[in-house]
Design a protein around this nucleic acid. Structure first.
Length: 277
DNA sequence: TGTCGATCTTCCGTTACCTCA
DNA sequence: ACTGAGGTAACGGAAGATCGA
C-alpha cells in the first residue's frame, strides 16, 4: 500500500524539558499555539523510528511538516504533541525498522487496556476529543490508537448486529414461506369445495364443527402461529422518519388490547440503524 | 447572505500482523 | 516446523459537518 510513501524519512524526536515547565508548540491548526503542561517532572526524551506509521510527516522539531497526509494523521500529530510524547515503550511496539523499512508492527492491547476501553465504550460508543486525549493518557496510548480502537469497536458492534438481524430476517422468511404454503393449500381446498357436488347429508353430531372439505382438520392440531405473527403485528406501523416499524399508531388510537404486551419492540429494518426514533 | 476552502469526525473497505488450532 | 483461518490494530479515502474568510 501507499502508506509507506508518507513516512518521514527523518528521525522523529520529541523533547520536553521537565521541572514543571510548560512547552509551547503548534497544534494542527498552524495559526494557533497551544501550551502544554509537561506531565512529568523528569526531563524526557522520546525517540521514534522513521517507519513508525504514527509519526508520519513529523519534523525533527516536533512540529508538523508541510507534507499533507490526511486529516486524521495530522490531527494525531497535534494530539501527540499535546500529550508530549508520553507514550510508553510498552505501548509502542510498532517501532522496529525492517530492512526495507516497510513493516507495520502491531500493538497488542493489554487486558487492562482492553477492559477500560470496553467500559468506556459501554458508556458511549464515541468520544469527544477531550475524552479521547484523557483516555489515551490514562491508558498510556496515543489518542489516535484510542480513536482507532473505537472505530474498530463500532464496526465490530455493527457487524454483530447485522448478523443477528440477518438471522432474524432468515427466520421471518422461512416463516412467511411456510405460511404462504399453508394459505395456498387452504385456497385450493376452498376452491375444491366451491366447485364440488352438493355435500352429503350432515355428519353425526360428534363430528360437528369439522369442515367438510378438510378431512385432516380434526386430526391435525391447530398450527402454531407463524413466527412473524408472534410479533404484535397489528400494532406495527412504519415510522416515516426512520422507516422502522413501530407500535405507536394503534396505541394512540386506543385500540390496543390491554392484556397484550406493549409493542415496544422495534421491528428490524435492515437499512436503517438510526436510534433517533 | 451565499460561497469556498480548510479542517475535523466518522464510516467503510482494506491491509497486515499476530495467535492459535 | 509449517500453514491457513480468524481476530484485530492500523491505514487511506470518501462523505458530511463546521467554521472562518
Amino acid at each position: 500500500m501507499a502508506q509507506e510513501e508518507v513516512h518521514d524519512a527523518g528521525l522523529a524526536l520529541g523533547l520536553s524539558l521537565g521541572g514543571g515547565s510548560s512547552s509551547a508548540h503548534r497544534s494542527n491548526n498552524s495559526s494557533r499555539l497551544t501550551l502544554w503542561e509537561a506531565p512529568s517532572a523528569e526531563p524526557s526524551l522520546t525517540l521514534s523510528m522513521p517507519d513508525d506509521p504514527t509519526m508520519t510527516g513529523r519534523t525533527a522539531s516536533g512540529g508538523v511538516s508541510s507534507m499533507s497526509v490526511g486529516g486524521a494523521v495530522k490531527r494525531e500529530r497535534a494530539e501527540e504533541a499535546e500529550l508530549g510524547e508520553m507514550v510508553s515503550s510498552t505501548a509502542v511496539v510498532a517501532a522496529e525498522e525492517d530492512d526495507d523499512g516497510s513493516t507495520r508492527k502491531k500493538l497488542r492491547l493489554t487486558k487492562e487496556q482492553s477492559a477500560l476501553l470496553e467500559d468506556r465504550f459501554k458508556e458511549h460508543s464515541t468520544l469527544n476529543p477531550k475524552q479521547k486525549v484523557a483516555l489515551a493518557k490514562q491508558l498510556n496510548l496515543r489518542p489516535r490508537q484510542v480513536e482507532v480502537w473505537f472505530q474498530n469497536r463500532r464496526a465490530r458492534t455493527k457487524l454483530k448486529q447485522t448478523e443477528v438481524d440477518c438471522e432474524f430476517l432468515k427466520r421471518c422468511c422461512e416463516s412467511l414461506t411456510e405460511e404462504n404454503r399453508r394459505l395456498q393449500r387452504e385456497l385450493q381446498e376452498l376452491r375444491a369445495i366451491k366447485f364440488a357436488p352438493p355435500p352429503p347429508p350432515p355428519p353425526p353430531p360428534n363430528n360437528a364443527g369439522q369442515h367438510p372439505g378438510t378431512p385432516s382438520a380434526a386430526a391435525a392440531p391447530a398450527p402454531a402461529p407463524p413466527f412473524y405473527m408472534q410479533l404484535p403485528a397489528a400494532t406495527l406501523t412504519i415510522c416515516p422518519s426512520c422507516e422502522r416499524l413501530s407500535g405507536t399508531a394503534a396505541t394512540a388510537a386506543g385500540k390496543v388490547d390491554p392484556d397484550r404486551p406493549k409493542a415496544t419492540h422495534h421491528f428490524f429494518n435492515p437499512f436503517t440503524h438510526s436510534a433517533a426514533c
